[in-house]
Structures are given as structure tokens and as C-alpha cells.
């Protein structure tokens, strides 16, 4: 099998398909409507739903913080502020990435466009890293200065263990959620689902792309 034979075989595919393909005029007639429709429909309903829930949650927490400021425990206010800031940051990064992915010029050379797309896609992992950081505040929002007495020593020890464990876990996850750990069991357990698989796949393709360019 030589080069010419390969090309002749491929050309035979071309010749036959030219006779079997017809372009429906409707594609062209409907073309002007494609821009808006494709852009609006490019997000999975579940993702859109999660973003809406996230925004509603942030609005709710903002309202609670403003209306209870100075009237409730400082632990609650500070915990809520940390939680709402991290959630806002995650939503912001996620929306920014979605918009940037839409704006990548796909008429650029394959390696250039794919590198941009894959880097943007894989950086979605930052959203997960940031969201895990809020873990410790779920163990502090209910605290009150009146609880810090010697009678509550045992409870305080448990509380401290719980808060510092969650703090350690959140920092550990923030540092360790990265592509290098993609083969680890805990990583697969966290990210082996339909929502995250495209992100993990993007990371794997980055390696292929690097190899291809060299």
C-alpha cells in the first residue's frame, strides 16, 4: 500500500459522496437565526439551573447579612460573608469562562484554538477548588460568644476539632484539586460524573496537544 493508493482510496470517498449529498436550501434560509439560538442553547439546563440557584442563594444571603448586621453574632455575619464572597467568586469565574469559551475564534489554527478552549475548560476546576474553601464556615456560623465558657469545655474541644479539621480539609482540597492528581481515587470519586467528565477530558487533551506541537 503506497501513498498514491491511500490518496486514491480517499478520493473515491469524495467522488461518491459528491453525488449523494444535497444541501437543503432551508439551511441557508434559516442561517440568520442560528447566532442567537446557538448561543442561548449552548449551556446544559442543569448547569443553567445550578447558576440560577447559586445567584438566588447569593441574593438571599446578601439580604440576610444586610438585615441582620449588628443584631446577630459576629460569627454568623463573618461566616455568611465568607460564604457569599466565595460563592460569588465561583459564579463569576464560571460565567467568565463560559463567555470566554463562546468567544474563542475557532477559525484560528487548530492547535491555537484548541489550546485556548482546553485551558479555559480545564480551569473550571478552579470553581471546585474555591467552593471547597467555604467548608469551615459551615461549622462556625452558629457560634455565639456566650458559648465560650468553661462549662462548655468538652463541647468547645469538639467544636475546635471539627472546625480545624474542615479548615485543613478545605485547604488540602484547594491545593490538591489539580490535574496531577486525576488518577487518584479521591479525585475520581469527586469528579467522575457527567458534569465534570468534559473538564477532565480537556485536561487529558492538553497533554496530547503539547505532544503534537513538539
Amino acid at each position: 500500500m503506497d501513498d498514491i493508493e491511500f490518496k486514491q482510496m480517499w478520493a473515491s470517498l469524495n467522488e461518491k459522496q459528491e453525488t449523494t449529498l444535497k444541501v437543503n436550501q432551508k439551511i441557508i434560509e434559516n442561517a440568520s437565526g442560528l447566532r442567537v439560538k446557538s448561543l442561548l442553547n449552548s449551556m446544559k439546563p442543569t448547569k443553567l439551573f445550578l447558576i440560577i440557584i447559586g445567584i438566588l442563594w447569593v441574593l438571599f444571603l446578601d439580604t440576610v447579612i444586610i438585615n441582620t448586621f449588628g443584631e446577630v453574632s459576629a460569627f454568623f455575619t463573618i461566616s455568611a460573608i465568607i460564604q457569599v464572597l466565595l460563592t460569588k467568586l465561583s459564579i463569576g469565574i464560571y460565567l467568565y469562562q463560559i463567555i470566554m469559551i463562546q468567544q474563542v475564534d475557532i477559525s484560528q489554527p487548530i492547535t491555537v484554538a484548541q489550546e485556548k478552549l482546553l485551558n479555559l475548560k480545564s480551569s473550571t476546576l478552579w470553581v471546585a477548588r474555591i467552593l471547597w474553601l467555604q467548608l469551615p464556615v459551615w461549622s462556625t456560623f452558629y457560634l455565639h460568644p456566650a458559648l465560650f465558657t468553661t462549662e462548655n469545655l468538652l463541647w468547645l474541644i469538639f467544636q475546635a476539632i471539627a472546625t480545624f479539621s474542615l479548615l485543613y480539609l478545605s485547604i488540602w482540597l484547594f491545593i490538591n484539586i489539580n490535574f496531577k492528581n486525576k488518577e487518584k481515587k479521591w479525585f475520581k470519586w469527586l469528579f467522575d460524573n457527567n458534569e465534570w467528565n468534559p473538564v477532565i477530558k480537556s485536561m487529558e487533551l492538553i497533554d496530547d496537544l503539547k505532544e503534537f506541537k513538539n
Binding site: 439551511i27 439546563p45 487548530i110
Partner: peptide
């Protein structure tokens, strides 16, 4: 360039399948 970029990015096919059936 455009067509290959779309094909290579096709791992997002679930998104495409769900949304584009009725577009064109």
C-alpha cells in the same frame, strides 16, 4: 480550521445533541 476545531471539540457532544436538534 473551523470544521476541524468543531469536530475535535466534539467531546461536548451531549450539549450539542440536547440543544441543536430543533435549531436547523
Amino acid at each position: 480550521r473551523v470544521v476541524l476545531n468543531v469536530a475535535i471539540s466534539y467531546y461536548r457532544k451531549q450539549v450539542i445533541r440536547q440543544n441543536h436538534h430543533q435549531i436547523i
